[in-house]
Every structure is written in structure tokens, then in C-alpha cells.
Design a protein around this nucleic acid. Structure first.
Lengths: 206, 206
DNA sequence: TAGATTGTTAATCGATTAACAATC
DNA sequence: TAGATTGTTAATCGATTAACAATC
């Protein structure tokens, strides 16, 4: 059986389609077109149709797409029909803000464990989570079956903590530390770094 | 005079080169090669050389690049030789965490004004900043000459607040709200949305 | 000098767009 | 039916990689 691989750049656009479609759904919009969806997010209609065609046929000629149906299909494609447990590692200001952020739960992500190495923080409660000793990651993460971690530790320790996470069975890391992690290829890493984004924009300013 | 435009995708990689080079610089590494730099950040040596060649000749055959010199040059290309003032709009948990984050100052970004529309928050101090009424943005932002804003308001009001920011003279927005902003083409927008990144990664998990 | 590495050109690869038959 | 819009193919466009002469 041949399974052609979908380009990662296409996969990366699907969550943006989903976000816009969920917004339409909340607004009570029942139907949309590649044209309308494209205008909402600044992507060409042709590209949206091409991207979706990688996964199946979801529309109807003449009428476009059922918003509810396309939401469902994209959720299935992105494996969002299950709840994903997250480990939150590093409970500084950012870790605390993320622990309190409602958006994760609203989208099927549940922070199930929070870690820090600071004895002052261990045992404290944040948003219903008890902060645990990061030396316990290796034990707790497999126990809870957690596959995704959000890394909000200082840059100086990010690489070694990331390695510990991989060792504990983590397979995807959302990295907030301002450093590029070197990990095995099979580990999925996405970076969130405001400095990098700001420096990208200053190029165009004067 | 012909000035070919550098592709945005190339500009977007420069901050990553800079980050890695600054790291090398702190480590006391004097010289590097496109090969070594590429391995550090997972980009091919050929691509790094090609990207840099858009802006000039910065290396020496046989020996590679002076780290300090290339840092300097990239900073100049990205307009990082001046301090950039930032407006922080929306002082919830995330806004507060960003206000306290040291990384901005360390990279030449200074949060000069913080805004919220909540009377409970206005007048309070966070990390040396007095939170101001967002109705004052139109007056204060031009006064301080602020060109860049970080937007950390709820999704429901992000579009309208963004429009107010543009109206106040803001030309670049780092958007943390989970919604795609529709703004004039000349406004530079970069999005930071953990849900989008997590959903990208779950595609590859099971 | 010999070895290493740049900057650049040409070749390859991949992504986006245009166009349109199919069809709701 | 007529109009609208899909899914897909082919054409175009752009980005990445390979290769190598130049040269430190």
C-alpha cells in the first residue's frame, strides 16, 4: 500500500484552517467556500483546495463546504478527537501563565503535570496543579502516558531538560526557550520565541 | 538603482542565525563555518551561504566567518543597532509574564507602555510599568514614537484593538491572540499561538 | 604549499497558482 | 436550468541543493 506523505508545510496550515472554521461555526455560519475561507486568513482559494485534496473530498461543487463537517474532518486529520495530556516544565512567570490559560482545555489539551527544580516551588499549587520535582519526570511522565511537553525553562538548561523529557518518553516539545534544541529526528519540536519574531519584523521597519 | 527584494523566508531565518551566533560568541567561539552553524540549527550549509550572500560577503575562504563580525552585520541588517520601544496591550497573565521577561531588554527591546481596559488594572504597576487606560493608546503611542506592539488581549477584542493600534501609528504587531488579524498590507504581523503549534504536532502522534 | 571553505551558478526539487471540466 | 464552486491537472514560480572555481 502506497501512502504518499503530506508535506509538512501543508500540515502546518491545517490548524489555521481549523481555527478560522471554528470561528465561523461559533458565529453560526453553516457553509463556506475556499474563496471566503482564504480571505479570512490570507491564503489563496486554490491553495486551500489543493491542501484539503491531500486528505479527501470535503466540499460540494456549487455550494462549497459545510463548516461543521469540515471542522470535524480537520479535527480527525489532526488527531484532535482525543484529549491530549501535556507536561509543563519550568514554572516561572511564563509557565504560570500557561498553567492558567483556558485555551488549552478548550481545545482538548490538558496540562496533567507541572515540573520545576526549585525547592521553593515544588509542592506549590498553580491552577489546580501541584508542582512536582523535575527529578520525578522520568517516573511520572510514562506513568501518565504523556507524549507532549511544553518547555519553559531558562535557555541554559533547556537542552539537558529536553533530553530528559525525551528519555521519559516525550515525543513532541513546544519549546519556549530561546535556543534551538538538538534532539533525535523522530522528536517533533516547535519553537515559540518572541525575540525571533520581533527581529523578523524590525527588518522591515526604520 | 535596482534593489532586488530579499525573500521574506530568508529574512525569517536571519534571527535564527543571529541567535546561534550570539550563543557561540558567549561561549568564546571566535570563528565558525556555514557547515558548523548549519549543524547547530538544522539548516544546510549551502542555504546559509546563499542566504547571507543576499546581503554581502561576510566570510573568508578557508577559514569561514568571524563570529563577532557576523553578529554585528546581522544586527545591522535586522536594524538591531537601535533600541526598539514596545507597547504591551492586554495585561492578563500572559501580558504580565511578558512584562517581567528579561529577554526583551537583553535584545534591545524595551517595553515602554502597557495598556489594559480593566479599571481594576489601570494604575497598577508591573515590572516598573504603570498600566494605562487603553483609551489613551491613540495619544500615548505616537507621543512615545512606538512602532511595535505585543497584543495579548482576548480573541474577541483582538481585531478591534489591533485596528486602534494601527490607527495610533503602530506598524508591527506580535499577535498572541488566537485569531488571524485582518489589517492593511503594510502592517507587519507575526502570530504566536501555542494551540496552532500543538495541533501541528499532534498530526504526527498517535 | 595543501586543505578548507567561501560565494555563486546551474540543476533540481517542491510549492503555488491558473485554468477548467465536472457537477451540485 | 444557470450559476457557483469544487477537485485536479498542467503551468509557473520560487526555494533548495549540488557543484566548483576562487582564494584564504
Amino acid at each position: 500500500m502506497i501512502t504518499r506523505t503530506v508535506p509538512d508545510i501543508v500540515v502546518g496550515r491545517l490548524p489555521r484552517y481549523l481555527q478560522a472554521l471554528e470561528h465561523m461555526h461559533r458565529e453560526g455560519i453553516k457553509t463556506t467556500s475556499s474563496q471566503e475561507l482564504g480571505e479570512a486568513i490570507g491564503i489563496s482559494a486554490a491553495q486551500i483546495r489543493k491542501d484539503l485534496s491531500q486528505f479527501g473530498e470535503f466540499g460540494k461543487q456549487g455550494t462549497g463546504y459545510s463548516v461543521a463537517y469540515l471542522v470535524e474532518q480537520l479535527q480527525a486529520i489532526l488527531k484532535l478527537t482525543t484529549i491530549w495530556d501535556l507536561a509543563l516544565v519550568g514554572m516561572g512567570d511564563l509557565g504560570n501563565a500557561l498553567a492558567r490559560y483556558q485555551g488549552f482545555a478548550e481545545h482538548g489539551f490538558r496540562i496533567t503535570a507541572a515540573f520545576d527544580n526549585d525547592p521553593e516551588k515544588i509542592g506549590k499549587e498553580v491552577a489546580g496543579l501541584i508542582i512536582q520535582d523535575s527529578r520525578e519526570m522520568k517516573r511520572i511522565i510514562p506513568q501518565l502516558g504523556i507524549k507532549i511537553a511544553m518547555l519553559t525553562v531558562p535557555a541554559s538548561v533547556a537542552q539537558s531538560v529536553a533530553e530528559e523529557l525525551v528519555d521519559a518518553g516525550i515525543r513532541a516539545i513546544l519549546n519556549y526557550a530561546p535556543i534551538s534544541l538538538n534532539l533525535p529526528n523522530e522528536i517533533h519540536v516547535e519553537n515559540i520565541d518572541p525575540i525571533i519574531k520581533l527581529q523578523h519584523m524590525t527588518y522591515y521597519l526604520d
